[in-house]
Design a protein around this nucleic acid. Structure first.
Lengths: 339, 339
DNA sequence: ATGAAAGCGCTAACAG
DNA sequence: CTGTTAGCGCTTTCAT
């Protein structure tokens, strides 16, 4: 179908030289006479030659490729992270093998095998990780082969690094802000019972309430069917239809918060007059919906870029801290203005 | 750093067999005695063996890897496409080498070289392509090496396939709908002068107006600085501040439409009472903002999945239509209800 | 400055 | 059913 690609031998024959010289003009040009070098370049041009990275990697034992797992690209938060990861990877000459895992551990394992076969230099797991024992083991097993970087999740082990933004702190900021602006019945919508971020946030929500001598009302805590706008919409609907009374709502990500807002508005509830809303992630849409949505930012670009940087340094043999922390910030917008 | 990986030779030695047998138990198990097969499997397990795909691909001349270029993952429309592409690729055993190009032709060329070196089996360009001569040539040159599939853009040439949704038709649907609901001064916001989708949509906008005997008012046509929410916000602001009068607004993608809506709302203009708004792409957010946004859907998942399917069939040597068309549909929501 | 040859890990005839 | 071996395209000593 595609004409056979020219190999280094074809170039050598055409130039009347040995393959070693061709290889050198590619990798160590200065070790080659400038005249022969230009001659060879001309031939490579003419034959439309491209080095075969497979062969190169086979001997160099490095592919300059990293595997990147994203929980769910559909969430703009992760899309943004993927973007920054890609940008920094590109700048550091890495290619990205991409996998959207949907937190499906089966799929993830399958992918890891695949990437390992393809000899990736390292793997980044970006996104809310599963808390199961099995999953931790899987990550540790992966780390036996290549360095692994996790974002917003931490597994202790050799060859495993993480960059995490302090989600307990971020949640505390959000909840405290709601309390400080006069709210006391704060609903809490979250996505998954067994994911690290959900657990951390729920715990912090409890603590912040009790620190302020507010009782926890189980009726105000609602698990969404999934951490999407639809999930948030339905969770809020469930809250409403069971007659829960709340004057504020915190959702563990912006998508769910946006979905919940839609439901509130559709139900004739005023934001923030009747219910104040805060989300998490600070995706761009927060600014552009109406009313604009208050949110906790975790500097997604930093998360992504640091993940790549860490991996890059590890691959360069540098000594790297196993865990880096990022500080979250609260962005207050219309949805949580004082009533 | 990482202990040397076991090779097929290590397995062979350990098992007291030749590498051929090992290779066979991996690729043609039935040609191997079941007893030796299980024995070998045990050893592979024990030595934590993974076949090296580089070596395999070097001889098989196929990597089962495709390169995927996305214009901008940050746009949920493309994120969704990436997702479906990934899903279908996964189902067909392909891995994805991912590049976010931002329509930067330099970066794209660099990436294409890289992917070609890595011997991808094919390349998908997803997203609004550049109209320049140089760019078409680049695609054609790429297609000399591997099959290429374009979404929503078409370049005629050997080894180039495209799946395009009829954006002229989609735009006509939107504009006609605005006219049919009593609007006559329809503002038009678009992103780039030299991108295929923009050109097609603008042209269709003109035609639909004139088909309805409506005059084109240059004052109502506004180019955004970029095809984002911010771009739409600012473009709408520019329209407003120069005193343009319009009772409807069509933006060539949802992000810009959402940005424009935000500006309208911030300016005290009622949607749809004063200005009716329609976007393009039908991203999920359309349903969850308030008021919900009417939009033209082009079945992003179909676009993505068909792209992979086409590539897959081409790679399997099947005969495939060079161009497939998809039919767009208009989704009417609150933002363009009759005033 | 250049060449010969071994080896990276694997597959696929060909032989037995 | 199993082994031998050439070769995939490239890099890298070791000579010259």
């Amino acid at each position: 179908m595609n004409q056979k690609r020219a190999s280094i031998y074809d170039i050598a024959k055409e130039a009347g030289m040995s393959v070693a010289t061709i290889s050198r003009t590619i990798n160590n040009p200065d070790k080659v006479n400038i005249k022969t070098r230009t001659k060879i370049h001309a031939i490579m041009e003419r034959l439309n030659y491209t080095p075969n990275a497979l062969a190169q990697s086979l001997v160099s034992r490095s592919t300059k490729t990293i595997g990147v797992f994203i929980a769910k690209v559909q969430n703009p938060f992760y899309a943004e992270m993927l973007h920054t990861i890609e940008k920094f990877a590109f700048d550091n000459q890495y290619s990205i093998l991409f996998g959207n895992t949907f937190n499906d551990i089966q799929k993830e394992e399958h992918y890891v095998d695949l990437f390992l076969k393809k000899q990736v230099d390292g793997i980044i797991f970006a996104g809310g990780r599963n808390l199961s024992e099995a999953h931790s083991e899987h990550i540790m097993k992966t780390a036996e082969r290549v360095p692994v970087v996790l974002t917003n999740h931490s597994v202790v082990g050799k060859n495993i690094y993480s960059v995490i933004s302090d989600e307990a702190e971020g949640t505390a900021l959000a909840v405290q802000h709601l309390i400080d602006t006069g709210r006391s019945k704060i609903a809490f919508i979250y996505g998954y019972d067994n994911s690290y971020p959900s657990v951390v946030k729920k715990d912090s929500y409890f603590k912040t309430l009790s620190r302020n001598h507010l009782a926890v009302d189980d009726n105000l805590i609602m698990k969404a069917s999934e951490d999407t706008m639809e999930g948030g919409y339905n969770a809020c609907g469930a809250l409403l239809s069971k007659g829960a009374e709340f004057d504020a709502l915190f959702a563990t990500n912006d998508l769910m918060a946006i979905g919940a807002m839609k439901k509130l508005i559709a139900s004739g509830i005023q934001i923030p007059q009747n219910v104040s809303v805060v989300g998490y992630d600070d995706i761009q849409f927060c600014n552009y919906i109406s009313p604009s949505l208050s949110s906790v930012t975790q500097n997604m670009s930093d998360l992504g870029s640091m993940a790549v940087q860490i991996l890059n340094e590890v691959l360069e043999g540098k000594n790297v801290e196993k865990i880096k922390y990022l500080q979250p910030h609260l962005k207050i917008r219309e949805s949580s203005m004082r009533a």
